[in-house]
């Protein structure tokens, strides 16, 4: 989710007869469900695709802290504040697990962060939308983390061992995020008419951006096929999006809110809800950097990195001094 539009070097899947012996053995391992581990041989494109996907996923966790951090000091109660603080802290942890997974592929964390700050790597489009009021914080936890969980549960079965293990860990913590969000929205939906209106407004605004989190429609995802063959991706964008809609519609109905899309309708034949596509031109525009908050988010990230430089340098200088003193004493 958190990784949209991951480009692979080629479109389509490399046919077996074009593979080298090593590549064939690698594909057989993947087909047999054996996890690939850091020091195992892997095709260069597999490594590069994973670094891009895991890196983008990690950046999303970290940038995702910004829209929520905005509301920590303005949470309506001390309890909600403590909960939001814990959630935002989790996101930092998730970023760290993912950067660690990317590092096992030979790319350093500082390098990934540099690429993000230079605008050469992306993060999920969803975090370029603003959180305007407290209802948005509830809706973000419920819908955005809810969409993330659907993607991440599938990714627990991804073929790269460290990525899969990071996903397992993240999923354990993530359902707290979705539930605290739904709980906050429940309070509002069942509260005063004004609160209910805020809840409705948040759902209306965040619904389509949440659907975009799964990436473009399968027919436009030219880079998915090889990732599916390598089991870097386990389910297609459209499959995951449908699963999200099917799961979320009854949750909206329980709240007594109106559905955010007039075309949402149960389709008996398919056994799924029908729904409207998001506006894909908006999606591509946000990805390109023209969303409502792209500039703010990147400025906040760069400022945090630059402002923290003296702390990182100071701690490293201290550690080196201590290590030198220890060597001298021996």
């Amino acid at each position: 989710m958190y990784a949209q539009m991951i480009k692979t070097a080629r479109t389509g899947v490399k046919p077996r007869e074009e593979m080298s012996e090593q590549e064939r053995a690698f594909q057989d391992k993947i087909d047999a469900g054996i996890k690939i581990e850091p020091r195992d041989w892997m095709p260069d494109d597999y490594r590069a695709t994973l670094i891009r996907q895991i890196g983008q996923h990690a950046h999303s966790e970290v940038v995702g802290q910004l829209p929520e951090g905005n509301w920590i000091t303005r949470a309506p109660t001390l309890e909600r504040k403590a909960i939001l603080l814990a959630k935002v802290q989790d996101e930092a942890g998730h970023g760290l697990y993912l950067y660690s997974a990317a590092e096992t592929l030979g790319e350093s964390r500082d390098e990934l962060i540099r690429l993000l700050h230079e605008g050469r790597m992306k993060y999920s489009s969803i975090f370029n939308y603003p959180t305007l009021n407290w209802a948005d914080i509830g809706a973000v936890g419920w819908l955005v983390d809810g969409a993330a969980i659907i993607n991440q549960v599938a990714l627990q079965r991804t073929s790269y061992g460290p990525y899969s293990r990071a996903m397992i860990r993240i999923c354990k913590e993530e359902s707290f995020h979705a539930r605290q969000g739904y709980h906050a929205i429940m309070k509002m939906a069942f509260g005063t008419p004004e609160q209910k209106k805020m809840a409705q407004d948040a759902v209306n605004r965040l619904w389509f951006p949440a659907l975009m989190m799964f990436g473009p429609s399968d027919k436009d995802s030219v880079h998915s096929e090889q990732s599916m063959a390598w089991k870097i991706k386990v389910k297609t964008n459209d499959e995951l999006r449908q699963q999200f809609v099917d799961q979320t519609v009854p949750q909206i109905e329980y709240l007594g809110l109106d559905l955010p899309d007039p075309n949402i309708k149960w389709n008996e034949e398919r056994g799924h809800y029908d729904f409207s596509d998001p506006d894909w031109s908006e999606f591509f525009d946000v990805i390109k950097g023209n969303g409502p908050c792209n500039v703010d988010r990147m400025n906040a990230r760069r400022k945090a990195w630059d402002d923290g430089q003296w702390v990182r340098d100071g701690l490293l200088a201290h550690a080196r001094k201590k290590a030198a003193a220890k060597v001298a004493a021996e």
Partner: peptide, 11 residues
């Protein structure tokens, strides 16, 4: 359980 970056053992 995983890994992390730190300047020294204490951190």
């Amino acid at each position: 359980v995983g890994s992390l970056h730190a300047p020294d053992a204490e951190m």
